[in-house]
Design a protein around this nucleic acid. Structure first.
Lengths: 340, 340
DNA sequence: TTGAAAGCGGTACCAC
DNA sequence: GTGGTACCGCTTTCAA
C-alpha cells in the first residue's frame, strides 16, 4: 500500500498524489477528487517512515524525564503538547530512569534523528567549555526547577524559586505570623535550596526572629518527628512553609492525625501547586509556577533552534528572557491569621 | 555524513559498512578495524530515519496514556522499558489528554508507522463486531485495572481483582475473623466491584454470616461515619476489608483519631499496595498486583503480535494466559487474630 | 569475505 | 497543472 497504488487507481502520477497531500491547491479540483476517491477506496495512509526519511526530520520533540512518577511533569506536558502540535511537532515522553545522563546521550538521539528536538528535565553533570559550546548548538532546551547555581547553561528555562519563596513567606507575614518555620527536603536540590534562601530573606526583611529552616528526610516518620518538635517550640510557631507540596501534604496529614487544627493552630503553605495540593484537608495554599508561560517560551526557543541552528550561535536574548515569568500565590484554606 | 563517507574513508563499499553494524561477524577482522577507525574519525552515527524506513519499522513501542499524572503508570513503565529494550524496542510515552479515543486513532499511529506497537492504558468505547475483529489484528495490547465486564476485548492484560479480593478475605478468615465488613468506593468502578464480589464469595465459602459491603463516598467525613457505624454493629465486627488502599488509609486515620487500636480491636486490610500503604500507623496489610509479571506478559504478547500478525488471527492462547498472574498478599501490622 | 546494485516510499525539481 | 525522475541513506540479495 503505497503512493503508487493510489496513483495507479486514480490514473495520475505519484507526483500528483504527493501534491495532493502537500500542496493541494496546485491541483485542479477534478484531479483532487480523483485522488481523494482513490485514497478513500484504498484507505491509504502516507508512510511516516518514508516521509521522515525523505524530509530528514522525525517531526518529534521528545521530553526527557527521569521518572514519570513526578507529579510536576504533567503540568509541563499538558502545556507543551498543544503548542508543539500547532508547530507541526508531536510530543513524546522518554523516561530514562537514569540521572546525570551524559551529553552524548542527547547528542546521539539527535544525530541519529530519533527526535528533531529535546526538552530535557534532568540535571546535567558539570560542563566544560567544549561541551557547553556543543550544547548551545544542539536543539535542546533544558527545563529544570532551578538553573544550576554556578553554571550558565545555554537555553535554560527555569523558575525563580527565590522570589517565589519570598512571596510565600510574605503571605504568611502579611497574615500576621511572626514565628514561621521552613521545612525543606534533605536532598541537595537547588530548587529547594533557593526557596530556603528566599524564605530566609523575606523573614529577615520583615525583621522577624524565626528564620529557622529544618531539613527532613522524605518519609512519614521523619516528618512526624519534625512536626512534633515544631509544635513544642517556643515562642510558639504559628506557620510552616514547606519548600515542596508533597512535604506540605505529609505535614498536613501528620497534623490531622495529631488532631491539630489547620489553619487555626498552625498555617501551612506549600510550593508548586501539584494536583493533590487542592485535595488536602484543608486545601493547601501554595505557589504556582507559570508552567504555561515557561513552556511556551521553551517550545518557542526550541523550534527556533531546530530551524535556525546553523546561524544562531548567540543566545543572549533567549537567556535573558527567562527571568521574566511571574509565579502566582494560590490561597486556599491551609493558611490564615494566627490566633493572638 | 552518511554511510558513504565512511565507506570512502575506510576504502570499502557501503555494504561493508552496513555489515559492520548489522552482521559484524561476517567481516574480516582487518576490514572491521578499518571501518571502525573511519567511523570513529568521522564520529558517524547511522541515520535512524533511513534505517527505519528501509526496515519498515520504527523500533518504537508507544505507551498511550490519558495523563501521565496518574501515579499508577510509573509501575508499568518502569517494568516495561527494560524488557522492551532487550527485545530491541525503545519505549516512549504518549499523553493524549483525551478519553475514549476512537480506534482509528490507534490504527493511524500504526499504519503510518509511527510506532510498531501500542500499549494502551486508556478505556475504549464499546466495540462492535467489526472493530473488535480489527483490533485483534493490530499490534495493540490493553492494560487496565480491570477488563470491562461485558466485553471480551482481545489482548487485554488485566488484574484478577476477584481472586485477589478472595485472598484478602481469606487472610482475615484464616486469622480467625468471623465478622468482617467490606468498605468500597461509591463510584462505579469495575475493579472495585469485582473486589467486592471476590470478598463476598470468600465469606460465603467460609460459611460466615457477615458479607456486608458498605459503599462510601470518597471523603473523610463519610468514612468517619461509616467507621463509626461499623464499630457499633452486632455481632462485633473485628475486621474491615477496604477495596482500595486510600480508603483503608482513611479508615486507619479515623480509627486512630478515635483511639481505637489496630489490629487489637479491629483489623484493616487494603488493596493495591500504593506507595503510602507502607507508611501508615500501623503499616497496612494489603494486596499487591503483579505489575512486573503483567507487564512482562503484555510486552511478550505485543512483540509476538508485531512479529506474527499476518499469521496469527486466533488469539485464544494469549487471552487465556491473562488469568494466571498471581497477586501477592503483603502482611504488615494492620491485621491480626481477633481477641476472643 | 566483499562489492554492485536494486529498491524501500516518498519529495521536489525540471519539463512539458 | 501534471508527469517523469533523481535521490534521500540504508539493507540485502546476488555474484564474484
Amino acid at each position: 500500500m503505497s503512493i503508487k497504488s493510489v496513483a495507479k487507481m486514480a490514473g495520475v502520477s505519484i507526483a500528483t498524489v504527493s501534491r495532493y497531500f502537500n500542496k493541494p491547491d496546485l491541483l485542479k479540483k477534478q484531479t483532487r477528487d480523483k485522488v481523494e476517491k482513490a485514497i478513500a477506496a484504498l484507505n491509504y495512509q502516507p508512510n511516516t517512515l518514508a516521509q521522515n526519511f525523505r524530509r530528514g526530520k522525525s517531526g518529534l520533540i521528545v521530553i526527557v524525564v527521569y521518572n514519570i512518577g513526578n507529579p510536576l511533569y504533567e503540568n509541563f506536558t499538558q502545556a507543551i503538547t498543544p503548542i508543539a502540535q500547532s508547530k507541526g511537532y508531536d510530543i513524546l515522553i522518554k523516561e530514562t530512569n537514569r540521572k546525570n545522563l551524559d551529553i552524548k546521550y542527547y547528542q546521539d538521539m539527535l544525530s541519529s534523528k530519533q527526535a528533531d528536538g529535546l526538552i530535557v528535565m534532568i540535571d546535567l553533570p558539570k560542563l566544560d567549555g567544549k561541551t557547553h559550546f556543543m550544547l548551545a548548538n544542539l536543539p535542546i532546551v533544558f527545563i529544570k526547577e532551578e538553573r544550576p547555581a554556578n553554571d550558565d547553561l545555554p537555553h535554560y528555562i527555569g523558575f525563580d524559586n527565590y522570589e517565589a519563596a519570598e512571596t510565600a513567606a510574605e503571605h504568611l507575614i502579611n497574615l500576621g505570623h511572626k514565628n514561621i518555620v521552613c521545612i525543606s527536603s534533605e536532598e541537595n536540590n537547588t530548587a529547594c535550596l533557593n526557596r530556603q534562601s528566599g524564605f530566609i530573606f523575606a523573614i529577615q526583611k520583615a525583621k522577624l526572629l524565626h528564620e529557622r529552616v529544618i531539613t527532613v528526610r522524605d518519609n512519614a516518620e521523619a516528618i512526624e518527628e519534625v512536626v512534633n518538635s515544631i509544635l513544642q517550640m517556643e515562642p510558639k510557631i504559628t506557620a510552616i512553609f514547606c519548600t515542596r507540596d508533597d512535604l506540605a501534604i505529609e505535614v498536613l496529614s501528620v497534623l490531622k492525625q495529631m488532631n491539630i487544627e489547620v489553619p487555626k493552630r498552625i498555617s501551612v503553605i506549600g510550593f508548586n501547586n501539584i494536583r493533590y495540593a487542592a485535595k488536602t484537608h484543608p486545601p493547601l495554599t501554595t505557589i504556582e509556577q507559570p508552567f504555561a508561560e515557561i513552556t511556551q517560551q521553551a517550545i518557542k526557543v526550541l523550534c527556533e533552534k531546530i530551524e535556525n541552528l546553523p546561524q544562531t550561535n548567540d543566545t543572549e536574548d533567549i537567556q535573558n528572557s527567562t527571568s521574566t515569568f511571574n509565579h502566582r500565590l494560590i490561597i486556599r484554606s491551609s493558611t490564615a491569621s494566627p490566633l493572638i
